Amino acid sequence: MALNTPQITPTKKITVRAIGEELPRGDYQRCPQCDMLFSLPEINSHQSAYCPRCQAKIRDGRDWSLTRLAAMAFTMLLLMPFAWGEPLLHIWLLGIRIDANVMQGIWQMTKQGDAITGSMVFFCVIGAPLILVTSIAYLWFGNRLGMNLRPVLLMLERLKEWVMLDIYLVGIGVASIKVQDYAHIQAGVGLFSFVALVILTTVTLSHLNVEELWERFYPQRPATRRDEKLRVCLGCHFTGYPDQRGRCPRCHIPLRLRRRHSLQKCWAALLASIVLLLPANLLPISIIYLNGGRQEDTILSGIMSLASSNIAVAGIVFIASILVPFTKVIVMFTLLLSIHFKCQQGLRTRILLLRMVTWIGRWSMLDLFVISLTMSLINRDQILAFTMGPAAFYFGAAVILTILAVEWLDSRLLWDAHESGNARFDD
């Protein structure tokens, strides 16, 4: 018995066209964080690309023209004298008006014999932002004059995390709450300039795509075929072959399989920071003279006294001054041990922890910024005066060393310790 099946006739004509040209192939790229070699397709503007294995951002879609970056830099340069030299806060102490600005706080630190601690604050609040705007201006002028731009481009990517104007702005709020127990506070004209400078700096850093600047100024022929001998440069993120001198053909720094002496430098910085954190938390970090009496505060006791007036601000200072430094030390110690013992479990967790400490590390400088600003506000000789204690130097040095330890660690070593050939990683 035959089955009668109805015929289905399409209502619209289906047209099949042959592909007349070869589909576009992607360029081969190595991930600078996990060293995976993959094919990167062509990316349009405002599109980002991520590593298929570790999800690290390979290409950032946010990109401004150099002219727009230069305009932002010149605007920031105009704001800087007002943000640093004009009063941020006014207080009335014992019937006398006192003005506080950024430069005055750094000068008070240096004047009291601790120039190293003052230079830490100076670099993060004044030096690094000033280098940022002058570097962008150098790129703008240098591109037109045919100057060598490689050193500036190499420095810009590392400079971003040292620009800490946003953290200093939080420190202004913390210092205001600490001082309000002794005097009446009012915002100064410099505060508005400083807030504007923070906003412009944040926007500029978020749109400063150094890798795209490398592509514009020093374009290189990408690798179009897969080759395990391809290496990625950690300076400019170019994937290719080393030249005859073993250097990256684009930025001219040595092109090595792994960062040289990464573990040794990381261990040295980490152990030194552990040693410095002990006096930083045991010795007094601030000293207040009130009517001839002397009151010393460690980091913890200062947080407890701050909690009596504002528990939320005390929580912020606790996280930045105690929780973050010790968390960074514990995480980095764990990561280094996992590399030495070739741990194969929990790779995803370790990668996330490394990215976390990379982002939060700079916030530990908050305590030094609060001390710097408070020193310029309260300084009335023996009637009422505020000065920093010996722990300030140890704390600042420990924070900087932990930042350097994270920067010096080559994250690809975590993958080397893991089993080879993993296309995915999980716990």
Rank of each mutant, 00 (worst) to 15 (best):
A2I: 04
A2S: 07
T5V: 07
T9D: 09
T9A: 05
T11N: 08
K13G: 07
G20R: 07
E22W: 07
E22I: 09
L23F: 06
P24H: 08
G26M: 09
Y28C: 07
Y28A: 08
C31H: 00
Q33M: 10
D35L: 01
P41I: 08
E42G: 06
I43G: 09
H46S: 08
Y50P: 01
C51I: 00
P52M: 04
P52F: 06
P52E: 05
Q55P: 10
A56F: 09
I58F: 05
D63A: 14
D63V: 12
W64A: 15
L66A: 10
T67R: 10
R68T: 02
L69E: 04
A71S: 08
A73Q: 03
T75A: 08
L77H: 05
L78M: 07
L79H: 11
M80C: 07
P81E: 07
F82K: 06
A83R: 01
E86F: 02
E86D: 06
E86C: 04
E86M: 03
I91Y: 01
L93N: 01
R97M: 14
R97P: 03
V102H: 02
M103A: 04
G113N: 14
D114V: 05
A115N: 04
T117P: 11
S119A: 11
F123A: 01
C124T: 11
V125C: 09
I126L: 14
G127T: 09
P129T: 07
L130S: 14
L130M: 13
L130T: 12
I131K: 01
V133P: 09
T134Q: 09
T134K: 12
S135W: 02
I136K: 13
A137N: 13
A137C: 09
A137G: 13
Y138H: 04
Y138K: 02
F141Y: 01
R144Q: 12
L145C: 08
L145M: 13
M147T: 12
N148D: 04
V152F: 05
L153R: 01
L154R: 01
W162M: 02
V163Q: 06
D166W: 15
D166S: 15
A175L: 01
I177T: 04
K178N: 14
V179G: 08
A183Y: 05
H184L: 05
Q186S: 09
Q186F: 09
A187K: 14
G190F: 01
G190S: 03
L191T: 11
F192E: 09
F194S: 12
V195A: 13
I199G: 10
L200D: 12
L200R: 00
T202M: 15
V203K: 08
V203I: 14
T204R: 01
V210F: 15
E211H: 13
W214G: 15
Y218Q: 09
P219E: 13
R225G: 12
D227A: 15
K229R: 13
R231E: 07
G235I: 03
C236R: 01
C236F: 00
F238E: 12
G240R: 11
Y241I: 12
Y241R: 12
Y241D: 12
D243T: 11
Q244F: 11
R247C: 12
C248E: 00
C248T: 00
R250H: 13
C251T: 00
R259K: 09
R260N: 10
H261N: 10
L263C: 13
Q264Y: 03
K265W: 03
C266R: 01
A269Q: 03
L270Q: 11
L271K: 10
A272Y: 02
L276T: 12
N281R: 00
L283Q: 11
I285M: 08
I285F: 00
I288W: 00
N291R: 15
G292C: 03
D297C: 06
I303A: 06
M304Y: 14
A307T: 14
N310K: 15
V313C: 09
A314R: 03
V317E: 01
F318C: 11
I319A: 15
V324T: 07
P325C: 04
K328R: 01
V331L: 10
V331T: 12
M332Y: 06
T334M: 15
L336H: 06
L337R: 13
S338Y: 15
I339P: 09
F341Q: 10
K342M: 10
K342S: 12
G346H: 14
L347N: 12
T349N: 12
I351N: 11
R355T: 14
R355P: 05
M356K: 07
T358H: 11
T358V: 13
W359A: 10
I360H: 03
G361T: 12
R362A: 05
L368G: 08
V370A: 02
I371R: 00
S372Q: 05
L373V: 02
T374C: 12
M375D: 00
I378D: 00
D381K: 03
Q382C: 04
I383Q: 02
I383W: 09
L384M: 09
F386H: 00
F386A: 01
M388Y: 04
P390L: 06
A392G: 04
A392W: 02
F395H: 12
L401F: 09
D410H: 00
S411M: 06
L413E: 10
L414Y: 07
W415F: 11
W415D: 08
A417R: 05
H418P: 13
S420G: 10
N422R: 10
F425G: 14
D426I: 12
